[in-house]
C-alpha cells in the first residue's frame, strides 16, 4: 500500500468514465444513422461498470487496491427503433413506407454525458488532493 496505489485507483475511474463518454458520444453522433455494417439502423450502446481488484492480490486482504473497469459495452435492446413515415427515404420499408431510426434519446444521452463529466471531475479532485499529500511528503525533512 502506498500513496501511488491510490493514484492507480483514480486513474481506473478516469479511464472508465472516458470510455463512457466515448460511447455516449457515439450514440449522439449516430442518432440518425439508418445504415450500419451489421445492417439495419444503429442501436444505442451502454457501458457496464464493474468493481475490480488489481495489483498485488495479497494486498486485497485488507481491501487492497480496488478500482473500476468497463465490464462490457452492450447494445440496448430495451427500447424499440423509432419508426417514422418517410416513403421517399432510401431505407424506407417498400411496403409500409416507414423508416426505422435508432433508439437514441438525445436528452438521455446528454444527461449521461453530464453525469460522466461530473464523475470524471470527482476523480480529478481526488487526484489533486492526493498530489498535495505526495508533494508535502516529499518536502518532509527539508
Amino acid at each position: 500500500m502506498s500513496l501511488f496505489t491510490a493514484l492507480d485507483v483514480n486513474t481506473s475511474g478516469l479511464t472508465a468514465q472516458r470510455r463512457r463518454f466515448e460511447v455516449t458520444s457515439s450514440n449522439l453522433n449516430n442518432a440518425n444513422t439508418t445504415r450500419t455494417f451489421e445492417g439495419g439502423p444503429y442501436r444505442r450502446k451502454d457501458v457496464v461498470f464493474q468493481n475490480t481488484t488489481f495489483g498485488n492480490a495479497l494486498m486485497s486482504a485488507d481491501g487492497g487496491s480496488e478500482g473500476v473497469e468497463v465490464g462490457a459495452v452492450l447494445d440496448d435492446y430495451s427500447t424499440a427503433f423509432d419508426l417514422r413515415y418517410e416513403p421517399g427515404h432510401p431505407d424506407a420499408d417498400p411496403v409500409t413506407g416507414y423508416v426505422s431510426y435508432p433508439n437514441v434519446d438525445t436528452a438521455e444521452e446528454m444527461i449521461n454525458m453530464m453525469s460522466a463529466a461530473r464523475s470524471y471531475e470527482a476523480n480529478i479532485s481526488a487526484i489533486s488532493i492526493l498530489k498535495t499529500m505526495i508533494n508535502r511528503t516529499l518536502e518532509l525533512g527539508r
Binding site: 500500500m1 491510490a6 483514480n10 481506473s12 481491501g63 480496488e66 476523480n123
Partner: peptide, 28 residues
C-alpha cells in the same frame, strides 16, 4: 499517516465506483 493514506485509497475507490451497479461504499 499510514491510516490516512490507506483511507484515501478507500475513499478514492468509492469515488471511482460511483456509477458501478451494486457497489457499496466502504471506509476504514
Amino acid at each position: 499517516m499510514d491510516w490516512n493514506a490507506r483511507r484515501h485509497q478507500s475513499l478514492s475507490n468509492n469515488i471511482t465506483n460511483i456509477d458501478t451497479p451494486g457497489f457499496h461504499a466502504k471506509d476504514v
